[in-house]
Design a binder for these strands. Structure first.
Length: 121
RNA sequence: CGGAGAGGAAGAGGCGAUCGCCGGUGUCCAGCGCAAGCGAAGACACGGGAGGAAAGUCCGAGCUUCACAGGGCAAGGUGCUGGUUAACGGCCAGUCGAGGUAACUCGCAGGACAGUGCAACAGAAAGCAAACCGCCGGCGAAAGUCGGUAAGGGUGAAAGGGUGCGGUAAGAGCGCACCGCCUCUUCGGUGACGAGGAGGGCAAGGAAAACCCCACCUGAAGCAAGACCAGACAGGAGUGGCGCUGCCCGCGCGAUGACUCCGGGUUGGUCGCUCGAGCCCGCCGGCAACGUCGGGCCUAGAUGAAUGAUCGCCGCUUUAAACGGUGACAGAACUCGGCUUAUCGACCUCUCCGUCGG
RNA sequence: GCGGGAGUAACUCAGUGGUAGAGUGCAACCUUGCCAAGGUUGACGUCGAGGGUUCGAAUCCCUUCUCCCGCU
């Protein structure tokens, strides 16, 4: 049971993008924010009360399976500890080649704080 | 002590805590049911959660579909022998050949008197052999010419047994000895083959990772296979056939059906999906690979795809010291048996060679 | 995950055991008052990488790397 006031840190299945159609919808009509290692594409959901959803795209060009998994885990962990995607939004993060050389979740902090600040404007 | 060879086993170092992710079991619970009971979503508790290569997809199988069972051709694969296995191109033991002082390692290791082709250039001649130079003999004053000759030179990757002695005009398996080769044969071995004996008197070269021949093996496709549920849509044209998909035979199916093309709709869910030729220990059989039997264990099942992050202590390591680093190759996708490739730092066992000491 | 295909000059491609070729491009020269076109000549290459078979390998065999395509 979650008590009122607690910060929610878990991420369930309805807080992630899980269908190809969702990715296509965000990538075709969302707005883009460039970072050093990441590209963010954000889009408002139809109902602003729905939970924020995150999708991660790391192509084979970036690295092998171990590298791609590590990038996803680091980015997902940082966002989980910093409030996740705001309610009512979808966001797709695309890793750039330089993301493969990062070794710690905080290495993505400059990009991700810039991206999260974008939601408030 | 130094050098070398063979094999084995384990590893994001260990313990604890917190925040998360994935699925499993149990409890509570809406609801269904007369009842026994079943049990959605969610919450809580308990325990589980990447590798030796999970990789490349190079082989072999299970499983599923192609209506059923079959014969022939074609195509492809394997290739010393004997075992092993569900099967294999794997593994084990041996044979032969090559390399190494040795331990040991490496080998696509059948057939070239079944046939067809190939060998550029060079060279006189390259596959029923052949006389350029040379050597020897006859004729001739000589140039030369006619013959003999494969020991020598030269060409070539390769020149039709090798070495030695005899022999001869010079030579030549022409003769002899040893080695090689071929045929027959004795003994040992399941066999590959080995050890010998007798004879032949050299004809029979290379290459089969050229075609091919021989022996053995193979139906095709693949979990995106395939089965079911829910939902959506709009039909039209053509072909006489279609099916285990290259061909033939045989067989079967077939006009509200089949196939092809155009157009339209969907891109959801459940099952398959993890208990299996499974893993560990022990006895016995076997040189071994492996097998019989007994006991114990349950060990990821995701689907935009889960193993991560933070903190404390200890260990290792870099450094003057650390608040630094924690390693290499690399991430399950139906499941097994192999092969191959990538790779860090240590550890253990056995063997060989050299040196010194006893 | 499964299935299939390709790597040869700067680019596009031939070459299927015997000296690596063509076109475009590049450089120099000729032609022109100058440029283009045309002509002549030239440089161009670890045949993706490693190992093997063969006297000899781009070609045959094995291993490996990179890229591309198809299947829900």
């Amino acid at each position: 049971m979650r008590r009122p006031g607690d910060q929610q840190l878990g991420i369930s299945k309805d807080m992630r993008l899980r269908q190809r159609a969702d990715y296509v919808a965000v990538q075709s009509s969302g707005s883009k924010v460039h970072g050093k290692h990441l590209l963010a594409i954000t889009r408002r959901r139809t109902d602003p009360a729905l939970a924020g959803r995150l999708g991660l795209t790391v192509t084979k060009k970036v690295g092998n399976a171990v590298v791609r998994n590590r990038i996803k885990r680091m980015v997902r962990e940082w966002i989980r500890l910093h409030g996740w995607v705001p309610t009512g939004w979808d966001m797709v993060l695309v890793a750039k080649d330089s993301a493969a050389r990062q070794v710690h979740p905080d290495d993505f902090a400059p990009d991700l704080t810039k991206i999260l600040r974008h939601f408030s404007t």
